[in-house]
Amino acid sequence: MQQLEQLFEQLNKIILGNAFATKLAVVCLLARGHLLIEDIPGVGKTTLSHALADLFGLPFKRVQFTSDLLPTDIIGMSIFDMESKKFHFKRGPVFTSILLADEINRATPKTQSSLLQAMEEQQVSVEGTQVDLPDPFFVIATQNPLEQSGTFPLPESQLDRFLMRLSLGYPDAGFERQLLKQNGALKTSSRSAIFSPGQVTKLIEQVDQVHVSDALIEYLHQLVVATRSSERFVTGLSPRAGLQWMQAAKALAFIENRDAVLPEDIQCLAEHTAAHRLHCSDGADSALELQRIVQQVEVL
Protein backbone atom coordinates (compact mmCIF):
# COMPACT_ATOMS: atom_id res chain seq x y z
CA MET A 1 0.00 0.00 0.00
CA GLN A 2 2.82 2.27 0.87
CA GLN A 3 4.27 1.59 -2.51
CA LEU A 4 1.03 2.61 -4.18
CA GLU A 5 1.01 5.87 -2.29
CA GLN A 6 4.56 6.42 -3.36
CA LEU A 7 3.57 5.70 -6.91
CA PHE A 8 0.83 8.28 -6.99
CA GLU A 9 3.07 10.80 -5.30
CA GLN A 10 5.66 10.35 -7.99
CA LEU A 11 3.13 10.28 -10.80
CA ASN A 12 1.52 13.47 -9.68
CA LYS A 13 4.86 15.14 -9.59
CA ILE A 14 5.36 14.24 -13.22
CA ILE A 15 1.82 14.83 -14.44
CA LEU A 16 0.92 17.99 -12.69
CA GLY A 17 -2.68 18.76 -11.76
CA ASN A 18 -4.28 15.67 -13.20
CA ALA A 19 -4.48 13.33 -10.23
CA PHE A 20 -7.75 11.81 -11.35
CA ALA A 21 -6.48 10.95 -14.80
CA THR A 22 -3.35 9.34 -13.41
CA LYS A 23 -5.46 7.36 -10.99
CA LEU A 24 -7.67 6.14 -13.81
CA ALA A 25 -4.62 5.13 -15.82
CA VAL A 26 -3.38 3.02 -12.92
CA VAL A 27 -6.86 1.54 -12.42
CA CYS A 28 -6.86 0.61 -16.06
CA LEU A 29 -3.53 -1.13 -15.80
CA LEU A 30 -4.47 -3.02 -12.65
CA ALA A 31 -7.80 -4.08 -14.17
CA ARG A 32 -5.93 -5.64 -17.13
CA GLY A 33 -7.60 -3.17 -19.42
CA HIS A 34 -6.33 -0.88 -22.11
CA LEU A 35 -6.46 2.84 -22.16
CA LEU A 36 -7.53 5.15 -24.93
CA ILE A 37 -6.49 8.74 -24.45
CA GLU A 38 -8.26 11.18 -26.66
CA ASP A 39 -6.60 14.52 -26.52
CA ILE A 40 -4.69 17.12 -28.37
CA PRO A 41 -0.91 16.74 -28.62
CA GLY A 42 1.31 18.07 -25.92
CA VAL A 43 -0.77 17.56 -22.83
CA GLY A 44 1.39 14.76 -21.52
CA LYS A 45 0.08 11.54 -23.03
CA THR A 46 3.53 10.25 -23.78
CA THR A 47 4.85 11.52 -20.49
CA LEU A 48 2.15 9.61 -18.65
CA SER A 49 2.96 6.40 -20.48
CA HIS A 50 6.65 6.82 -19.88
CA ALA A 51 6.09 7.58 -16.23
CA LEU A 52 3.87 4.55 -15.74
CA ALA A 53 6.41 2.29 -17.40
CA ASP A 54 9.26 3.67 -15.40
CA LEU A 55 7.53 3.64 -12.03
CA PHE A 56 6.07 0.13 -12.48
CA GLY A 57 9.42 -1.06 -13.77
CA LEU A 58 7.89 -2.49 -16.92
CA PRO A 59 9.39 -2.54 -20.41
CA PHE A 60 7.99 0.19 -22.59
CA LYS A 61 7.77 0.65 -26.33
CA ARG A 62 6.18 3.25 -28.47
CA VAL A 63 4.80 3.02 -31.96
CA GLN A 64 3.91 6.07 -33.90
CA PHE A 65 0.96 5.12 -36.09
CA THR A 66 0.96 6.45 -39.61
CA SER A 67 -1.08 5.61 -42.62
CA ASP A 68 1.69 3.49 -44.11
CA LEU A 69 2.29 1.46 -40.96
CA LEU A 70 1.92 -2.27 -41.59
CA PRO A 71 0.88 -5.03 -39.17
CA THR A 72 4.41 -6.45 -39.37
CA ASP A 73 5.73 -3.15 -38.10
CA ILE A 74 3.89 -3.87 -34.86
CA ILE A 75 4.05 -7.63 -34.53
CA GLY A 76 7.40 -8.27 -36.18
CA MET A 77 8.45 -10.41 -39.06
CA SER A 78 10.62 -13.33 -40.07
CA ILE A 79 13.93 -12.37 -41.56
CA PHE A 80 16.18 -14.72 -43.49
CA ASP A 81 19.52 -15.10 -41.80
CA MET A 82 22.17 -15.55 -44.46
CA GLU A 83 24.60 -17.20 -42.07
CA SER A 84 22.38 -19.87 -40.51
CA LYS A 85 20.25 -20.02 -43.67
CA LYS A 86 17.14 -19.98 -41.54
CA PHE A 87 14.26 -17.64 -40.91
CA HIS A 88 14.46 -15.79 -37.66
CA PHE A 89 11.45 -14.12 -36.17
CA LYS A 90 12.28 -10.58 -35.30
CA ARG A 91 9.91 -9.49 -32.58
CA GLY A 92 8.08 -6.25 -33.17
CA PRO A 93 7.39 -3.54 -30.65
CA VAL A 94 4.27 -5.30 -29.46
CA PHE A 95 6.39 -7.61 -27.34
CA THR A 96 6.51 -5.32 -24.39
CA SER A 97 4.49 -4.68 -21.26
CA ILE A 98 3.46 -1.11 -21.86
CA LEU A 99 2.86 -0.14 -25.44
CA LEU A 100 2.10 3.39 -26.45
CA ALA A 101 0.21 3.37 -29.73
CA ASP A 102 0.39 6.98 -30.65
CA GLU A 103 -2.30 8.41 -32.90
CA ILE A 104 -3.82 5.03 -33.54
CA ASN A 105 -6.52 6.45 -35.78
CA ARG A 106 -4.01 7.42 -38.41
CA ALA A 107 -3.17 3.81 -39.29
CA THR A 108 -5.22 1.71 -41.70
CA PRO A 109 -7.91 -0.53 -40.24
CA LYS A 110 -5.80 -3.57 -41.08
CA THR A 111 -2.96 -2.35 -38.88
CA GLN A 112 -5.35 -1.24 -36.17
CA SER A 113 -6.98 -4.62 -36.01
CA SER A 114 -3.65 -6.42 -35.74
CA LEU A 115 -3.05 -4.48 -32.56
CA LEU A 116 -6.57 -5.05 -31.36
CA GLN A 117 -6.21 -8.80 -31.55
CA ALA A 118 -3.17 -8.52 -29.37
CA MET A 119 -5.14 -6.40 -26.91
CA GLU A 120 -8.03 -8.78 -26.69
CA GLU A 121 -6.26 -12.08 -26.55
CA GLN A 122 -2.90 -11.03 -25.20
CA GLN A 123 -1.24 -13.00 -27.95
CA VAL A 124 -0.40 -12.49 -31.60
CA SER A 125 -0.50 -14.77 -34.60
CA VAL A 126 2.89 -15.17 -36.16
CA GLU A 127 2.93 -17.24 -39.32
CA GLY A 128 0.05 -19.34 -38.14
CA THR A 129 1.19 -19.92 -34.58
CA GLN A 130 0.06 -18.08 -31.53
CA VAL A 131 2.73 -16.33 -29.57
CA ASP A 132 1.98 -15.11 -26.08
CA LEU A 133 2.71 -11.53 -25.15
CA PRO A 134 4.32 -10.57 -21.86
CA ASP A 135 2.14 -10.30 -18.79
CA PRO A 136 1.00 -7.67 -17.93
CA PHE A 137 0.30 -6.25 -21.33
CA PHE A 138 -1.02 -2.74 -21.29
CA VAL A 139 -1.78 -0.65 -24.34
CA ILE A 140 -2.15 3.08 -24.17
CA ALA A 141 -3.53 4.29 -27.45
CA THR A 142 -3.93 7.94 -28.20
CA GLN A 143 -5.92 9.66 -30.81
CA ASN A 144 -6.18 13.23 -31.82
CA PRO A 145 -9.77 14.39 -31.98
CA LEU A 146 -8.98 17.49 -34.01
CA GLU A 147 -7.21 15.98 -36.98
CA GLN A 148 -9.94 14.42 -38.97
CA SER A 149 -8.56 14.24 -42.48
CA GLY A 150 -6.59 11.14 -43.32
CA THR A 151 -7.66 9.29 -40.26
CA PHE A 152 -9.48 6.01 -39.80
CA PRO A 153 -11.72 6.39 -36.76
CA LEU A 154 -11.87 3.28 -34.63
CA PRO A 155 -15.13 1.39 -35.22
CA GLU A 156 -17.44 0.74 -32.30
CA SER A 157 -16.44 -2.89 -31.99
CA GLN A 158 -12.86 -1.83 -31.47
CA LEU A 159 -13.68 0.98 -29.10
CA ASP A 160 -15.40 -1.65 -26.98
CA ARG A 161 -12.01 -3.29 -26.40
CA PHE A 162 -10.65 -0.31 -24.52
CA LEU A 163 -11.48 -0.41 -20.86
CA MET A 164 -11.41 3.34 -20.57
CA ARG A 165 -11.31 6.44 -22.58
CA LEU A 166 -10.10 9.62 -21.00
CA SER A 167 -8.75 12.95 -21.91
CA LEU A 168 -6.06 14.70 -19.90
CA GLY A 169 -6.97 18.27 -20.65
CA TYR A 170 -5.00 21.36 -19.88
CA PRO A 171 -3.52 21.61 -16.41
CA ASP A 172 -4.76 24.31 -14.03
CA ALA A 173 -3.15 27.71 -14.26
CA GLY A 174 -1.18 27.14 -11.07
CA PHE A 175 0.07 23.80 -12.09
CA GLU A 176 0.92 25.01 -15.53
CA ARG A 177 2.99 27.85 -14.07
CA GLN A 178 4.71 25.32 -11.85
CA LEU A 179 5.35 23.15 -14.87
CA LEU A 180 6.87 26.03 -16.74
CA LYS A 181 8.98 26.94 -13.74
CA GLN A 182 10.31 23.43 -13.38
CA ASN A 183 11.16 23.45 -17.06
CA GLY A 184 10.92 19.71 -17.14
CA ALA A 185 13.46 19.25 -14.38
CA LEU A 186 11.67 16.23 -12.99
CA LYS A 187 11.76 14.49 -16.31
CA THR A 188 14.75 12.40 -15.54
CA SER A 189 15.20 12.56 -11.81
CA SER A 190 13.52 10.18 -9.35
CA ARG A 191 12.16 7.89 -11.99
CA SER A 192 13.46 4.71 -10.53
CA ALA A 193 11.07 1.78 -10.51
CA ILE A 194 8.90 1.39 -7.42
CA PHE A 195 7.71 -2.11 -8.24
CA SER A 196 9.41 -5.16 -9.56
CA PRO A 197 7.59 -6.93 -12.43
CA GLY A 198 6.60 -9.74 -10.04
CA GLN A 199 5.04 -7.24 -7.67
CA VAL A 200 2.95 -5.79 -10.45
CA THR A 201 1.52 -9.19 -11.26
CA LYS A 202 0.80 -9.65 -7.59
CA LEU A 203 -1.03 -6.33 -7.43
CA ILE A 204 -3.18 -7.34 -10.34
CA GLU A 205 -3.98 -10.61 -8.64
CA GLN A 206 -4.90 -8.76 -5.47
CA VAL A 207 -7.43 -6.73 -7.43
CA ASP A 208 -9.26 -9.95 -8.15
CA GLN A 209 -9.63 -10.53 -4.41
CA VAL A 210 -11.74 -7.42 -3.94
CA HIS A 211 -15.23 -8.38 -2.89
CA VAL A 212 -18.25 -7.57 -5.02
CA SER A 213 -21.50 -8.01 -3.14
CA ASP A 214 -24.77 -9.16 -4.67
CA ALA A 215 -26.24 -5.76 -3.98
CA LEU A 216 -23.53 -4.15 -6.04
CA ILE A 217 -23.93 -6.60 -8.90
CA GLU A 218 -27.63 -5.80 -8.86
CA TYR A 219 -26.88 -2.09 -9.07
CA LEU A 220 -24.41 -2.50 -11.91
CA HIS A 221 -26.81 -4.74 -13.76
CA GLN A 222 -29.59 -2.19 -13.43
CA LEU A 223 -27.31 0.42 -14.93
CA VAL A 224 -26.34 -1.79 -17.85
CA VAL A 225 -29.97 -2.73 -18.51
CA ALA A 226 -30.97 0.93 -18.31
CA THR A 227 -28.56 1.77 -21.13
CA ARG A 228 -30.19 -0.92 -23.23
CA SER A 229 -33.73 0.29 -22.70
CA SER A 230 -32.83 3.92 -23.25
CA GLU A 231 -34.32 5.16 -26.45
CA ARG A 232 -31.52 7.61 -27.12
CA PHE A 233 -28.77 5.06 -27.48
CA VAL A 234 -28.38 3.12 -30.68
CA THR A 235 -27.39 0.04 -28.69
CA GLY A 236 -26.87 -0.57 -25.00
CA LEU A 237 -23.80 -1.79 -23.20
CA SER A 238 -22.48 -5.21 -24.05
CA PRO A 239 -21.94 -7.86 -21.39
CA ARG A 240 -18.20 -7.34 -21.91
CA ALA A 241 -18.65 -3.69 -21.06
CA GLY A 242 -20.38 -4.68 -17.82
CA LEU A 243 -17.59 -7.10 -16.94
CA GLN A 244 -14.92 -4.53 -17.60
CA TRP A 245 -16.78 -1.87 -15.67
CA MET A 246 -16.87 -4.19 -12.67
CA GLN A 247 -13.19 -5.08 -13.01
CA ALA A 248 -12.29 -1.40 -13.14
CA ALA A 249 -14.40 -0.75 -10.06
CA LYS A 250 -12.54 -3.50 -8.24
CA ALA A 251 -9.22 -1.96 -9.20
CA LEU A 252 -10.42 1.44 -8.03
CA ALA A 253 -11.57 0.02 -4.72
CA PHE A 254 -8.21 -1.67 -4.35
CA ILE A 255 -6.34 1.54 -4.97
CA GLU A 256 -8.55 3.28 -2.46
CA ASN A 257 -7.51 0.61 0.01
CA ARG A 258 -10.90 -1.00 0.38
CA ASP A 259 -11.73 -4.69 0.31
CA ALA A 260 -15.14 -4.25 -1.29
CA VAL A 261 -16.52 -2.30 -4.20
CA LEU A 262 -18.93 0.52 -3.36
CA PRO A 263 -21.56 2.10 -5.59
CA GLU A 264 -19.38 5.21 -5.64
CA ASP A 265 -16.73 3.27 -7.55
CA ILE A 266 -19.25 2.32 -10.19
CA GLN A 267 -20.59 5.85 -10.50
CA CYS A 268 -17.14 7.36 -10.59
CA LEU A 269 -16.06 5.15 -13.47
CA ALA A 270 -19.29 5.34 -15.45
CA GLU A 271 -18.25 8.02 -17.88
CA HIS A 272 -14.77 6.71 -18.53
CA THR A 273 -15.57 3.03 -18.90
CA ALA A 274 -18.95 3.23 -20.63
CA ALA A 275 -19.40 6.46 -22.54
CA HIS A 276 -17.08 5.57 -25.41
CA ARG A 277 -19.04 2.36 -26.07
CA LEU A 278 -22.37 4.14 -26.42
CA HIS A 279 -23.66 6.23 -29.27
CA CYS A 280 -26.62 8.50 -29.22
CA SER A 281 -28.84 8.05 -32.21
CA ASP A 282 -29.09 11.82 -32.63
CA GLY A 283 -25.35 12.33 -32.39
CA ALA A 284 -25.50 13.94 -28.96
CA ASP A 285 -22.85 13.41 -26.32
CA SER A 286 -23.32 9.93 -24.96
CA ALA A 287 -21.61 10.93 -21.67
CA LEU A 288 -24.47 13.29 -20.84
CA GLU A 289 -27.15 10.70 -21.49
CA LEU A 290 -25.17 8.19 -19.45
CA GLN A 291 -25.00 10.71 -16.64
CA ARG A 292 -28.75 11.07 -16.76
CA ILE A 293 -29.21 7.30 -16.52
CA VAL A 294 -26.86 7.08 -13.56
CA GLN A 295 -28.89 9.77 -11.85
CA GLN A 296 -32.06 7.76 -12.34
CA VAL A 297 -30.99 4.34 -11.15
CA GLU A 298 -31.56 4.12 -7.45
CA VAL A 299 -28.79 3.15 -5.05
CA LEU A 300 -29.73 1.71 -1.73
Partner: peptide, 29 residues
Amino acid sequence: LSDAQKTYLKFIQRFKRFDLTKQRADTPN
Protein backbone atom coordinates in the same frame (compact mmCIF):
# COMPACT_ATOMS: atom_id res chain seq x y z
CA LEU B 1 -36.27 -4.90 -0.31
CA SER B 2 -34.09 -6.66 2.20
CA ASP B 3 -34.44 -6.00 5.96
CA ALA B 4 -31.33 -3.87 5.93
CA GLN B 5 -32.69 -1.73 3.11
CA LYS B 6 -36.01 -1.26 4.86
CA THR B 7 -34.28 -0.19 8.03
CA TYR B 8 -32.07 2.17 6.09
CA LEU B 9 -35.12 3.72 4.45
CA LYS B 10 -36.51 4.32 7.93
CA PHE B 11 -33.25 6.05 8.80
CA ILE B 12 -33.49 8.26 5.73
CA GLN B 13 -37.10 9.01 6.48
CA ARG B 14 -36.03 10.79 9.70
CA PHE B 15 -34.31 13.48 7.66
CA LYS B 16 -37.25 14.15 5.45
CA ARG B 17 -38.87 16.66 7.72
CA PHE B 18 -35.73 18.76 7.57
CA ASP B 19 -35.97 18.76 3.79
CA LEU B 20 -33.09 16.44 3.41
CA THR B 21 -33.99 13.73 0.97
CA LYS B 22 -31.83 11.15 -0.63
CA GLN B 23 -31.56 11.53 -4.38
CA ARG B 24 -31.96 8.32 -6.32
CA ALA B 25 -28.33 8.14 -7.32
CA ASP B 26 -27.00 9.20 -3.91
CA THR B 27 -24.91 6.45 -2.40
CA PRO B 28 -25.24 5.96 1.35
CA ASN B 29 -21.88 7.62 1.90
